[in-house]
C-alpha cells in the first residue's frame, strides 16, 4: 500500500466522518437529492403504521387484482390486499433487512478482522475460512441457508449477512496490518498499552471510515439480495411484506398488472440508488487520495 493511503493522524478519520454531513452540503446536486429521497423513504417507512389505510395482510377475494381507486390508492394484489399499504410496510421490512445485514456483518467482520489482523496464529486459520466463504457464490450460500433455517426474517438476514462478512474482515485486516506498522502504534505497544486499548484507540478510528462506506454498500446489496431470494422462492413469508416478496408475488401478473412490480421496484431502486450515491460520496470524501486531487 502506498504511503498516501496511510492515516496521517489517528484522529483525522474520525473528524472526517463527523464532518461528513457538513461537507455533503457543499457537494449539492446528486448526493443532496439522494439524501432527501432516502430521508423521505425512511420516515415514510418508519411512520407507516400510523397512516396506512388498510391492514397490509387483510385478504379479500372480492377485491383481487383491482386497479387504483379511492379505496385502494395503488390497487390490490392477487389476494385482494392493498398494494399501497403493503409497499410502505414492505419498505420498513426491506430497510430493516438492509440495515440489519449491514450492522451485523460490519460488527462481526470488524471483530473478526481485528483479531485476525493482530494475532498471527488466528490469522491464517481465519483467513482460510474467510477465503472459503468468499469462494462459495453468495446467492447459492444464501439460498441454502434460508432452506436450512426456514424463510423467517432473521434467517434471511443471516443468509444475506454471512457471505458479506469475509469482505469486511479482509478490509479491516488490511487496515490493521497497515496501521500496525505505524510509529505511534508501535510506540503504544512499546509503552505497554494493553491490547484492547490499542485496538480501541488506534485501530477503530482508522477502520471506521472505510467500514461506513462498506456498510452502505452492504445495506444496498442486502435489500437487492432479499428481492432475488424472494424471486427464487427462498424469501420471507408473504405475511411479512417486503419490496422483494411483493415483486416476487407480482411477477406472475407482470403483463396484466405491472403496478405490482412497478411500485415496489421503483421504491426499491430509488432507495438503493440513494444509498449507493451517498456511499460513493462518502467514499470520495473519506479517501484522502481522491480528496487531495480534487483540491
Amino acid at each position: 500500500m502506498s504511503a498516501a493511503n496511510a492515516p496521517v493522524s489517528r484522529l483525522q478519520p474520525v473528524l472526517g466522518l463527523l464532518s461528513l454531513p457538513l461537507r455533503l452540503r457543499k457537494l449539492g446536486g446528486g448526493p443532496m437529492i439522494a439524501a432527501i429521497v432516502l430521508i423521505i423513504i425512511v420516515i415514510a417507512a418508519a411512520l407507516a403504521p400510523l397512516y396506512i389505510p388498510h391492514d397490509p395482510l387483510a385478504i379479500n377475494a372480492i377485491y383481487r387484482l383491482k386497479g387504483p381507486s379511492e379505496m385502494f390508492l395503488l390497487g390490490t394484489d392477487a389476494y385482494g390486499r392493498d398494494l399501497f399499504s403493503r409497499v410502505v410496510m414492505g419498505g420498513r421490512v426491506s430497510l430493516f433487512i438492509g440495515v440489519g445485514a449491514a450492522v451485523v456483518s460490519v460488527s462481526l467482520g470488524l471483530a473478526i478482522g481485528l483479531v485476525s489482523g493482530f494475532f498471527r496464529v488466528a490469522d491464517s486459520i481465519i483467513m482460510r475460512i474467510m477465503d472459503s466463504l468468499m469462494a462459495i457464490p453468495s446467492i447459492l450460500l444464501a439460498i441454502a441457508l434460508v432452506a436450512l433455517n426456514g424463510p423467517s426474517l432473521w434467517s434471511v438476514i443471516a443468509a444475506i449477512t454471512l457471505p458479506e462478512i469475509p469482505r469486511v474482515v479482509r478490509l479491516v485486516r488490511s487496515v490493521v496490518l497497515t496501521v500496525r506498522e505505524e510509529p505511534y502504534v508501535e510506540a503504544a505497544v512499546a509503552l505497554g498499552s494493553s491490547m484492547p486499548k490499542i485496538l480501541w484507540q488506534h485501530l477503530m478510528p482508522n477502520t471506521l471510515a472505510p467500514l461506513t462506506v462498506q456498510g452502505t454498500y452492504i445495506c444496498a446489496s442486502a435489500i437487492l439480495t432479499e428481492a432475488i431470494l424472494s424471486f427464487l422462492g427462498a424469501g420471507v413469508s408473504t405475511e411479512i411484506p417486503t419490496w422483494g416478496n411483493i415483486m416476487a408475488e407480482g411477477r406472475l401478473y407482470f403483463q396484466i398488472k405491472p403496478s405490482l412490480i412497478f411500485w415496489p421496484g421503483l421504491m426499491l431502486s430509488l432507495c438503493i440508488l440513494s444509498i449507493n450515491l451517498l456511499g460513493d460520496t462518502a467514499r470520495d470524501l473519506l479517501d484522502p487520495r481522491l480528496r487531495k486531487r480534487e483540491a
Partner: peptide, 26 residues
C-alpha cells in the same frame, strides 16, 4: 392461497395460528 386464507379464518375463530413458511420440498 389456501394456508393464508385458512390462517385468517382459524384466527377469526379463536385459534392461535403459527404459520410457518417453507419451500414445498421442506
Amino acid at each position: 392461497a389456501q394456508p393464508i386464507v385458512a390462517a385468517q379464518a382459524l384466527r377469526d375463530a379463536g385459534f392461535t395460528v403459527d404459520m410457518q413458511p417453507m419451500d414445498w420440498q421442506t
